[in-house]
């Protein structure tokens, strides 16, 4: 199955958190970065790594869920979570190579990007056009720290 996801150009991200602001507005009705489904992780020396679900074709999060709370949206192919079923055990977050599953700051349940039904708000709002909603045949493999290390290597930044 081909799928679409939010693909990030990490070098374009300036760390402004506007994606987080709007994600939480859409999902929670307020500016609440900790409840955002897309999050930016700052890495030395000044890199901002955006973490958002890549909607993998072979998602490890789905396999490990003890309550079968995950399902794939028929319309968008987004992997979504049935919050009724989620018990907040964290197995999915542990299994995700990218770390793109977060915990809701209030109820502790797993939350993740569901592509806003095919019209992702963060993509629309990013002032740097660092986010793109398009088809991607790749599963997530690296974690944010590895992405940052890789960028540093390319930039020939030695610590």
């Amino acid at each position: 199955m081909t799928h679409r996801a939010i693909v990030v150009d990490q070098m374009k991200c300036n760390g402004c958190q506007i994606c987080e602001i709007h994600c939480s507005r859409i999902k929670e009705g307020k500016v609440w970065p900790e409840a955002s489904r897309i999050q930016i992780f700052p890495f030395f020396p000044g890199l901002d790594i955006v973490v958002v679900c890549q909607q993998c074709e072979n998602p490890s999060c789905v396999d490990v869920c003890p309550t079968d709370a995950f399902f794939r949206d028929e319309e968008t192919a987004a992997i979504s979570i049935d919050s009724e079923k989620c018990i907040g055990c964290g197995a999915c977050a542990e299994a995700c190579p990218l770390g793109a599953i977060f915990f809701h700051p209030e109820n502790g349940k797993a939350v993740k990007c569901d592509l806003c039904g095919g019209y992702p708000e963060c993509v629309k709002r990013c002032p740097e056009n660092a986010l793109e909603y398009r088809m991607t045949p790749f599963d997530a493999t690296a974690n944010p720290s590895e992405i940052a290390q890789n960028m540093k290597k390319k930039l020939v930044i030695v610590e």
């Binding site: 070098m11 374009k12 991200c13 300036n14 760390g15 402004c16 958190q17 506007i18 602001i21 500016v31 000044g46 901002d48 002032p127 740097e128 930039l155």
Partner: peptide, 10 residues
């Protein structure tokens, strides 16, 4: 090499 912004700043 890239831009940097404060919280919520376009």
């Amino acid at each position: 090499i890239k831009r940097k912004a404060c919280f919520g700043c376009p």
